[in-house]
Design a protein around this nucleic acid. Sequence first.
DNA 1: GGCCAGGGTAGAA
DNA 2: TTCTACCATGGC
Length: 266
Amino acid sequence: MKYVVKGNEVVLHEPLDCKAILTCGQVFRFREVSGGYEVFSSDKRCLMFSDKIVSDEPMYFVNYFDLDADYGEYINSLSKFDELSYGLKVGKGIRILRQDLFEMIISFIISANNNIPRIKGIIERICDFCGIDKGGYRAFPTPDELKRVTKEELRSLGAGYRDISLVRAAKILSETDFLYKVTEANTNEATKMLLSLPGVGPKVADCILLFGLRRWDCFPVDTWIMKTCSNETLDTPSKVREYYLKRYGSLSGLAQQYIFYGAREK
DNA sequence: GGCCAGGGTAGAA
DNA sequence: TTCTACCATGGC
């Protein structure tokens, strides 16, 4: 996508589909404001409009919104698959955000067996409870900051039974070089590492790989994806995952977003 | 008031 | 390796 950075604004030369990008389930920290959205990532914030992005750190959000990528080529390659037609019709403006790894790990541990509005609320309350004050909003906590939060406090913030997973994951991520190592690892090794974290199973690992590590050779299978393939042979998440990984190859993660968004748009 | 939500885990088969 | 019961919580 073509753009120009002027001061604290990123001026876009083609429109950004804010709704599709933000509501396709990859990001939980945003809210509607007049004419656009306020979006938070790690300790940063921006205002997102269809024609511009405004932030004190514009280059962070150039990377965050993956503005240097040309999605036209990806869409062209995927448009030959009939099952993607509706998702591409309503969600062709989707872009895979390049999000913070630690924030993705914690957010998707919370996402397990949960719904998006509630996930957003839990994360917002955790940020308010232990994220540093940035003046008008609070940052996502660092591993060290989250480590200091107790199981009981997380439960009171609405985390439910995921509290113990969060406590144990925060301890690992703050006391070891896990985050560095998983960033350097190839997709297979990174998957194994992520699966070793408490509260991380196959689906959550795929979401972390896709949204936090920019690995598109992944295909998260949740209940919405399973609904779309009421098929005799594709009857388990692992079978569905293998089928679509072979079908879409290095564009699997993006294709999955079109299916997910299309399914939720009915 | 039961069902569902971007599922994972321990224990059993 | 795959199957099952169970796990908080809020919206519908």
